[in-house]
Write a protein that binds this DNA or RNA. Sequence first.
DNA 1: CGAATGGTTGACGCTTCTCAAACTACGTGG
DNA 2: CCACGTAGTTTGAGAAGCGTCAACCATTCG
Lengths: 236, 236
Amino acid sequence: MHLEAAATSAVKAGPTLIAFPPGLAVGPAVAQIATPMPHKKAAGEILFSEGEDAESVYEVTGGMLRLYKLLPDGRRQITGFATAGHLLGLAPEGICVYTAEALTEVTLRRYKRAAVERLIDEVPGFARRMLAATSQELRAAQDQMLLLGRKSASEKVASFLVMIAEQQARSGEDELDLPMTRSDIADYLGLTIETVSRTLSKLKQAGLIALPTAVRIEILDRDRLEDMAAGDELSC
Amino acid sequence: MHLEAAATSAVKAGPTLIAFPPGLAVGPAVAQIATPMPHKKAAGEILFSEGEDAESVYEVTGGMLRLYKLLPDGRRQITGFATAGHLLGLAPEGICVYTAEALTEVTLRRYKRAAVERLIDEVPGFARRMLAATSQELRAAQDQMLLLGRKSASEKVASFLVMIAEQQARSGEDELDLPMTRSDIADYLGLTIETVSRTLSKLKQAGLIALPTAVRIEILDRDRLEDMAAGDELSC
DNA sequence: CGAATGGTTGACGCTTCTCAAACTACGTGG
DNA sequence: CCACGTAGTTTGAGAAGCGTCAACCATTCG
């Protein structure tokens, strides 16, 4: 019942999380096997931490989380932002490989991991759908590797803006709300806060975007931004 | 028959490819449904290219390939190295998302993609195994994101050496053969050839490794190398 | 109003990149 | 067998992009 809803929601939102591609339905058997527990987390709360036992699988129904890994000295790499429709905590070895932290208030449905595993084994086609979703995440992760390893700061920020724009493609609006801070963007792109801020200022000066407020971004020249994101020189 | 062999081979080798975790067996139905075509590629040959239709799925049985994505101006990010046991070309949308190129001579088994898809649908447990393998790759991809976004050159090279060492863990040998060039290593770690070379020289000077020849590396202090790879300061 | 959090901007420095030259290994052909 | 060419590697000098440190500004909240 609930997982079906997720199955029809949008895909993309960055790498490292499981999302159900659109057009997939799970089937009526689901709710009987895996009964969801409604959940809510306030901004800043941690859903689960890297290294913990993964006892539950969470389905995001609202809000946004950041998913990240840490180095011993505190350096952080955000591997993705999870939004409605994403499934978190499906670690195959039963251990969380990243931390999930609420960025806004977040609503979730919690499933017992064992129940989801049973679904995978027993509901025909369910494993296949999970496989498709996971493959999609893997593809996104590979794009992110290209970004982190080979793109300049301008190209990274442009890529980020294009990604957010695609995600918030509701109506024809070219105004974006950023739920995350500069620090989150920096840790997602492998940059520092200052470089993100400076790069946004440069894009603003170049007339590609406008910044009414810090968390609000208007895209003025989508085409050039996409060219820049793709690495088509003219990076500035 | 053949896929079972793969199912019992080692996992790790870097992100972005599908490998069968050890201890998984596919079952005797496989060979009947998806008959493999033996294949061979010489070093330098391209198996498939980014953007192409993914018509076949390849199972690597010997040798090594590099998997990479390109930016329009030629910048390259290697997302992983594929070795025996890895499955390539399982793009869910039917389009290759990276290029696979033989690094050494490579032996492969080719399956029709449609046949593998049928396997996924019809052989109980097969989709589940593919899901486990793909999740494992996703985990590795996340590790690589942390490396690319937040590790220093020394930490990157140390991580690479530890990875290769784990992969070539045959016997107690601490001598490694590198099938790839400095250029490949650089494009895997998000560095340049020169930085890789200089970093290896520094590690040699620090007594952590020895370099009998360019393609041969002896690990002298595994512990410190692993500390460095994990980001435990003392980076040098 | 003042503190706190987050964002912007500037000056400076360091890590890594770029450009260039020299060295090594290896295979080919004279 | 050795000169030569080629591809790959190493090393150096200099440049640049991004990080670090620091000050200042904006917004929110008690």
